[in-house]
Design a protein around this nucleic acid. Structure first.
Length: 420
RNA sequence: GCGAUCGUGGUGAAGUGGUUAACACAUCGGAUUGUGGUUCCGACAUGCGUGGGUUCGAUCCCCACCGGUCGCCCCA
């Protein structure tokens, strides 16, 4: 039996890294005052169709959808925002006096895709959503949090790309301009783009295949179609980023694959050498209208999500060592029935005193037990044999220096607490 | 969904159409009857992803499937 394609087991040795990273992200969330929300791992399929958008790749070809025993169409969540907004609406969080509602989540997402480096069918996302504010300052806050998530872990080769998709009116005008621009050469575009031109012309812009097409070079930029209000909003977001000393690059072709975005859109990429083909570490944007679309009151929102897998890859690529201390305080070595029995109680007492302790369970000889202790990088080995037992003592050996001393059994816990 | 490439023990990795599938590391045992990281000796593949086929005979040839890796599309 093997784990299903595109999934992976995280084993001891790497789970420590995950714990560390997740801990840091939660800490960061608290600093920004985002609170944790946990939503189900599966939802009604309709939520994603309406929330993420029917024309997106995610909905069209990447969802894990199945019928449950009650013939309900269920989908393993492909992203987090739709669920969070659904929950926000369902529990009427918009009614809370504390607005905006600032939430974060961390958990597995599922997308049916061909696995490759940095892309799994089950992967873990950390993300935040700020609902209830249309202040450009909160756009900047979310972007700042996203950048900070990487920087606080020690990453440096980062590139922040931002764009504005404008409001409804701006998007409509731009959309029409795109249709007018590309329709005359429709036949020359790739199959996907011919479809996109009808369903979501904006996405023609980020097509990789048609990038060299002459009509692509002078395609109408969304930035030229922003109405005054949208432009002012974008300017303010940039002003906040400037004020916060967060460097960014404006890319008018940054479109994002999900339908719900408007106004601010951004992506963070890694510049690290040898990072592989997929350089996007995280992405996000504003989604005014999504809450309404999912049955709530008119509520603006913005959020972003990052993949822990890619974050770990970036750390690896930049050679960042995480400060993970997986050492063992003590390893108890014993030989003989009486000593073994006593050793078990000693181990128990030390553990209750909050000390990390382990012992042999393989019936190994002294030598083997020492090798095991060495391999586990135990700081101290406590030796209990017939001699020690007879004198109610135990030998405490410092594995780093090789020094060994004898301690009375009834003072062992105290002694260990003193030297650790 | 498309393309490339790969699939031998815990790990890395040789290899051949035909009795016992190199080697290294790791692990275990012993040399050293109660003390680690060195050295020496020894042990260690339900048999070479799964299922078919070709053949007197296949781990090595063919086919299918599954899986890994990388890339395309797209994204986290």
């Amino acid at each position: 039996m093997k784990a299903p394609r595109g999934t992976q087991d995280l084993l001891p040795g790497v789970t420590e890294k995950w714990q560390y990273v997740e801990g840091k992200l939660k800490e960061l969330s608290n600093n920004y005052h985002y609170q944790e929300i946990r939503t189900p791992i599966f939802e009604h399929t309709e939520l994603f169709q309406r929330g993420v958008g029917d024309t997106t790749d995610i909905v069209q070809k990447e969802m894990y959808t199945f019928l449950d025993k009650g013939d309900r169409s269920i989908t393993l969540r492909p992203e987090g925002t739709a669920s969070v907004v659904r929950s926000f609406v369902e529990h009427k969080l918009f009614g809370s006096p504390n607005q905006p509602t600032k939430l974060f989540y961390i958990g597995p997402m599922f997308r049916y895709e061909r696995p490759q480096q940095g892309r799994m069918r089950q992967f873990v996302q950390y993300g935040v959503e700020a609902l209830g504010s249309a202040d450009p300052a909160i756009d900047a806050e979310v972007i700042s949090l996203a950048m900070n998530a990487y920087q606080t872990l020690g990453l440096q080769s980062l590139k922040l790309v931002i764009n504005s998709l404008g409001d409804q009116e701006s998007r409509e005008n731009h959309r029409q301009a795109l249709i007018d621009h590309f329709t005359p050469v429709k036949e020359e575009l790739c199959d996907d783009c011919q479809t996109r031109l009808e369903q979501n012309p904006l996405r023609v812009l980020d097509c990789k295949k048609d990038r060299e097409h002459p009509k692509m070079q002078d395609a109408p930029s969304i930035l030229e179609y922003l109405n005054d209000e949208s432009e002012a909003y974008f300017e303010k977001v940039k002003a906040y980023l400037d004020a916060m000393n967060i460097p960014y690059e404006v890319d008018p072709n940054l479109v994002r694959g999900l339908d719900y975005y408007n106004h601010t859109a951004f992506e963070i990429m890694s510049n690290a050498e040898g990072f592989g083909a997929i350089t996007t570490l995280s992405g996000g944007g504003r989604y005014n209208g999504l809450v309404e679309n999912l049955g709530g009151p008119e509520t603006p929102g913005i959020g972003f999500a990052l993949s822990i897998e890619r974050l770990l890859m970036a750390l690896e690529a930049e050679g960042v060592e995480l400060p993970i201390d997986s050492q063992l305080d003590c390893y108890v070595v014993s030989l003989g029935d009486a000593a073994n029995l006593k050793a078990a109680t000693i181990v128990n007492e030390l553990r209750q005193a909050g000390i990390q302790v382990d012992k042999d369970y393989q019936a190994k000889k002294f030598k083997g037990q020492f090798k095991a202790a060495d391999r586990l990088q135990a700081k101290y080995v406590l030796v209990l044999g017939d001699d020690e037992l007879a004198n109610n003592q135990i030998a405490v050996k410092n594995m780093e220096t090789g020094d060994q001393e004898t301690v009375a059994l009834d003072q062992l816990t105290e002694h260990m607490q003193g030297i650790l």
